[in-house]
Design a protein around this nucleic acid. Structure first.
Lengths: 117, 117
DNA sequence: CCGGATCCACTGGGATACTG
DNA sequence: CAGTATCCCAGTGGATCCGG
């Protein structure tokens, strides 16, 4: 961490990942390669079509994922991670690992607070 | 990335880092160890007292940073990274590195778009 | 099947003024 | 010096309906 704050690019990476459904989307696509819109939607309980579309568009805009439309009836649209997007994988892994520890950390903290009483 | 989405903890880490001034705060404290509120504020152009206070409180709540109040007049409050908070450093590093590449990537993309015309 | 268009609630961030 | 208290605005996320 020998960078001066003026040239901090952390936010750039953060901006890509921030969005209620983006981490989940990436996880699905990283694990399963290519998925149709409807499959993606089905595997993400609670998401609306509008939101899923929006988040996918934003990831596509940053070249993290790729969108392929098959001009047929009924429509078919497939999404997949780009090579470039795959470079985010180590970061997601690291965050997942840290998050897991943090969850344990918070539980421990709660237990200690209860003991105080 | 062999985790199923149901046990995705990426958001937990993300939630800690998200906040307009949090990455910068962490960067400053990681680099310079301990800083007073006013020093921190001075090194972050544009931040208001309210926002700086708020972001610091949130980081403190998660045990990422430590707040020490010296009961004197005028008041003196020092902030520093906790041992636990320091475990975020690799993630911040990785994001900074990725962000730097991404900035270059976007510039390249723009140039290509201009060439199209 | 996919996604655009509208309308709406909520909250994150900010400007400003005030206090021990 | 450090922090609260108010008021405000814009953006995000969501519910719902419509269309190719």
């Amino acid at each position: 961490m020998d960078k001066v704050p003026e040239e901090c690019r952390v936010e750039d990476a953060l901006g890509i990942l921030v969005g209620k459904w983006k981490p989940i989307i990436l996880l699905h696509l990283l694990q399963e390669g290519t998925k149709r819109f409807s499959d993606l939607k089905r595997s993400m309980p609670g998401v609306t079509q509008k939101m899923l579309t929006k988040q996918l568009r934003e990831l596509e805009e940053e070249d993290i994922i790729q969108r392929v439309v098959y001009p047929q009836v009924p429509p078919k649209v497939e999404y997949s991670i780009t090579e470039y997007g795959r470079s985010l994988e180590p970061i997601l892994e690291a965050m997942h690992e840290w998050g897991t520890k943090h969850t344990a950390h918070k539980q421990e903290k709660q237990i200690n607070q209860i003991k105080q009483n």
